[in-house]
Design a protein around this nucleic acid. Structure first.
Lengths: 140, 140
DNA sequence: TCTACAGTTAAAGTTAGCTTTAAGGTCAAG
DNA sequence: CTTGACCTTAAAGCTAACTTTAACTGTAGA
């Protein structure tokens, strides 16, 4: 068991951030000592690390709160979390595909310009590159 | 050439957002008609689409402002065009790196949850997996 | 001409995700 | 028994990224 300062040190998070997450309902009920100090277990540290990972993956706190297993809802939250994560993964992979296409187009036209004799065609090719950027915008 | 409403329709962005980007210096000087209305070219549309793409990959507007070419900076000649294109290629590859990191983080969490036996505490296992991710936090 | 919609500005409001501040209480060490 | 580190709370403050509002001008159509 440890107090908030030690948990902050172990996770690299500011104590204010940990208290903020608690207030936002991202961490379950926190145990208190007689003097009112918060008491944390290693489980709390792991929960915070999971929250950190989810945030790095682009989840908002609201999304994280939606799938994080809170006290009592173990198996249901499990499936819900997986569904949310797979949805996010699909979004990221779709973006990767679009980016890869854009990159391929860029490299193609760079090669074409490099092999174009001076004084010919290069602006046409440059415009072609810009065209490869079209339609890459995704609805959020 | 088009006015802001048409550009908004083509890009899917709100006109207020486009004006905001202009105020923030993400798109260079915008051409005006005699009546004061903004006039946009396809180049502006492409710039907005690139900004969108970068944002989806996790870049802040400040980061994007640092690397996007502005409206005024048209390529001059063969070498300049090539330089622009290679710069864009580097930008796209930077987006890919960022996205790959995001995807890796996502897959990590999915694996962790999938390998949690039913009924067991999600936080109690796959600690080695979690540790392997430490220090891989995305640069802000 | 009247209506309606598109455009203009500056400034204020909003949401997320925190941090900082103010005003304390707790506790081990010197 | 005071000092100083660490803890508590509620509330205010901050930055990013926009949106909304208010007050106005421009333009096209019946």
């Amino acid at each position: 068991m440890m107090r908030i300062g030690e948990l902050a040190r172990q996770t690299g998070l500011a104590p204010s951030k940990i208290r903020f997450y608690e207030a936002e309902g991202l961490i379950g009920a926190v145990d208190r000592k007689a003097n009112g100090y918060r008491q944390y277990s290693q489980r709390a540290r792991q929960a915070l690390e999971l929250i950190n990972l989810a945030q790095q993956a682009g989840f908002s706190l609201a999304e994280i709160r939606a799938f994080i297993p809170r006290e009592g809802e173990a198996p249901h939250g499990h499936d819900r979390a997986l569904a949310e994560l797979r949805k996010k993964l699909a979004e990221v992979e779709a973006l990767q595909v679009k980016l890869a296409e854009t990159r391929a187009g860029l490299k193609l036209v760079i090669t074409r310009i490099e092999t174009t004799p001076p004084g010919r065609d290069c602006f046409e090719n440059a415009e072609g590159v810009l065209k490869s950027f079209r339609g890459k915008a995704l609805p959020a």
